[in-house]
Design a protein around this nucleic acid. Sequence first.
RNA 1: GGGCGGUUAGCUCAGUCUGGUCAGAGCGCCUGCCUUACAAGCAGGAGGUCCCCGGUUCGAGCCCGGGAUCGCCCACCA
Length: 845
Amino acid sequence: MPELPKRYDPAAAEPPVLERWLAAPELYHPAPEGTAAENYSIAIPPPNVTGALHMGHALNGSIQDTLIRFQRMQGRRAKWILGTDHAGIATQAQVEKLLLREGTDRETLGREAFVARVWEWRERYGGTIIEQLKRLGASCDFAEERFTLDPAYAQAVAKVFVELHEQGLIYRDLRLVNWDPGTRSAISDLEVEEREVQDVMYAIDYPLASGSGAVTVATVRPETMLADTAIAVHPDDERYARLVGETAILPLVGRRLPIIADPYVKPEFGTGALKITPGHDPNDFEIGRRHGLPELSVIGEDGRMTEEAGEWAGLPVREARERIVAALTEQELIVSRTPYTHMVPHSHRSGERIEPLISLQWFMRMEELAEPAAAVVRDGTVRITPENHRRVYLDWLENIRPWCISRQLWWGHQLPVWYRAEETYVGLEPPAGEGWTRDPDVLDTWFSSALWPFATLGWPEETDELRAFYPTDALVTARDILFLWVARMVMMGLRFRGEVPFTDVYITSVIQAPDGRRMSKSLGTGIDPLDEIARHGADGVRFGLLAMSSSQDVRYAEDKVAQGQGLANKLWNASRFVLGQVEAGGAVADATPRAIEDAWILARLERAKAEAARAIEGFEFHRAALGLYDFVYAELCDWYLEWVKGREDALPILLAVLEETLRMAHPVIPFVTEAMWAHLPGAEGLIAAAPWPAAAPEREDEEAESAVARAIAAVQAVRSWRDEVGVRPGATVPARLEAAGYEDVAGGLARLARLELASGEDGATGPVASLAIPGGTLHILPSDALDLEAASRRAGAERARLAGEIGRAEGKLANAGFVAKAPSAVVAAEREKLARLQAALAELG
RNA sequence: GGGCGGUUAGCUCAGUCUGGUCAGAGCGCCUGCCUUACAAGCAGGAGGUCCCCGGUUCGAGCCCGGGAUCGCCCACCA
């Protein structure tokens, strides 16, 4: 094989392989036939159209592709449902930024033109991440790419909205919502993140209407006092008992505030008296509803004070706060100011501080959907791996709250809702008659994502795809969208298909930067998987990410990727070695063992296959990757290839083992295995379309395994001895074997340890060294290859080591408890070990 | 305030479910080798109080209790 380079160069080798896969749609686009139970499918977590491949996608993609390729090679129709998400806020923001640079904005453009502009943007740039997935080797169904805003998909979304509305689960309500001043939209609870903020807590005196003193309240947001409608104290708080039912006067405004009792108030916190602002605080809102308090709004959607705020109208909140504090100070109503650090809700999207506002929005009632979604996880219909996420999932569903689903954006699924005066119409088609106006809001992006596993397959039509691939099998994602997405898919799948959307949820690790910080572009800690692919190849990146993956968060380790690259190179060279011999001699693969080492490698291959299959099916990808590495390096290359060098009759077995190893490895490192496959004699088509190697129980051979294991240990003992004693590496050393169980492996031992084994009588000479090996002793006979002084030094060290081990074994056996209570097999093994050690020591003299 | 997870070699991590053969891998380091597949290689080696304390057990990285420490998730204390 002179045309094959000594070094495997993934940058050169991978692209042509990719071309061949892409030219074979039958590989990744299975016919929509058969049942979902027979077939295998995964719906990709749809990346945002604005997205570029990051490390999370790369890990996710590596895992899903390993599963898909493995199942495809098992002969199943394997479909990896592909597509992208319209990602309302992210995409709209992207295009708005563009407009800003052009000196215009969406308001100027108008809704229709703006949306057209976003579509244009999407056509141009939306495919980036798909191309990047290809480079990773992901064998998605590229023949059918979905988009959550496709017309057919939009139909599905509208239908779900209309039906849930008819069923009373979707409703419109005036409630306090999380208002994001950054995106100028309401957002759901899940899109809010708590951040630590330094505030000042003010204690403010509210004079009593009776004129007899004041009640002091604590607040970090004095500007909201303009919307106060009560003061609350705890019902059992004796300090305030006499004030309940009294009235306080709101400073600056003069409003009369009833003093009420509510158990929500914590007497020990602050002053124990709480100003109630139902219009701007979620807790106060609830208290207000309980007590029938008026709900005033003094802050608007633009983050400025409203007309209700009187002289402060129009001021940004922060400025209003300063002025109000100044006014209160002037009136000597501020009792204290205390620096106060606490958690404050911020928008996950814009990063701005959430402004709780009372707003008319659409909500979804969740209890009725959550219950069955919890049940299927409880009863194991849906398995979550790793299992500790189960509890988190269930806890969330058991404490579910209404979901605010309307968003004040333009890019997305516009609500199928029309208004005319006091009338509201909800339907798939616009209402008949004049004067209707459509609700301008769009749905939360996660509303449409929740339908992903079935809307991508053509629902609500009863398509062949739906029959063949729903429910899907595995859902692979990071845990940050367990509630946002996974739980909601389960709800919607059950509600609209009557079946779970997938049977396994695998939660991936989060890959952190090498220093343990979050990988993020803004922190500058991001590592681009494409750079890593350029450096180490897609196989290396895939292997490395799988090897890193775990049940916990992990730091990115380029080492592991390099290890994967090393594996690809190793397989490449092992293949070159085998193929070079084929070229010289010609051979056909045949796995019939001709020598004990053949039986050994076949038995080891069986174990490697079983372990790989078990690991992939059990979502233990690090085991799958590292197990493969160990087999290829430690067994196939380090021992078997070296052992059979020069043995011509081993070639058919070598070929057979290589061929199976490539197929076994393909789901993890698809490129190098495909590249090599093309050179194998007799191999047809794509390895990607070849069957994964079936179990061959007749190859199991524990005798061969233990015989070769003995030989390996003996070789290592000799090599270690040679090195320490300073025997020239090339020299052959005479020796005599006095050990049981080496009948079939003596030749291999001699060759690999560079020994010349003397037969019984030839070896009668006194040994210059004796090495303990499994089953007996290897005596080194005198020769000019070794330094006797070094040998005796080494023997002394060996004696000390043996004596130590003997002491340990004796101690253990002297322990009456051990002998009496440990299982007899364990005790027997210990006795055997002691006898062996003693014999070895005796041999050393 | 609840919940979850981590702490094992200089670094990044396996191993803990199922206690004994389990002190492991990769990288790094030291020594020797271009041995006719691979120097991105091969062979050999050094290096660990398995976070701490206590318990269970004949025997504990592994099981139990407590603690320290780092991290994550959830949560409406002004």
